[in-house]
Amino acid sequence: MAHDEHNPLTHPEVRSASSAMYIAAFVLGIVAMGIACLVTVGFDLSQSDTLTWITVLAVIAGLGQLFLLFKLDLSKTMIWHTVSLVLTVPLFFMAVGLTIWMFHYLALRTMVGG
């Protein structure tokens, strides 16, 4: 993370700004969400097919934004940002997935309605 200590504008996180990557992130996000919306309301797909498609598109948009906006990589500047995200993502999906799984079987066994 070496940089000119007297000028904060030489910091690697400042220097990493890139118009091309920000525009690419914007286009990717808008196109992916637009297609996902079209898949949901414009096509007569089964619910599982729709969920698969919009999940794939969300993953593409999310990963694209993480890479293009945050510049996450294994460089000396960003490696610990990347590592902490990689360690957080499984926790995120475990929290969501296991909670839904637990309450799904709870509902089946107790017949509790909404």
Binding site: A25, G29, A32, M33, A36, C37, T40, V41, Q47, T50, L51, I54, T55, L57, A58, A61, G62, Q65, L66, L69, F70
Partner: peptide, 24 residues
């Protein structure tokens, strides 16, 4: 910048998981 960009990533999840899945 981190905070603001993060809102876009979370919105992808909200739009997909709440808006699109809710309508599908």
């Amino acid at each position: 910048r981190i905070f603001w960009f993060f809102q876009a990533v979370i919105w992808v999840c909200v739009y997909t998981y709440v808006y699109l899945m809710g309508a599908s």
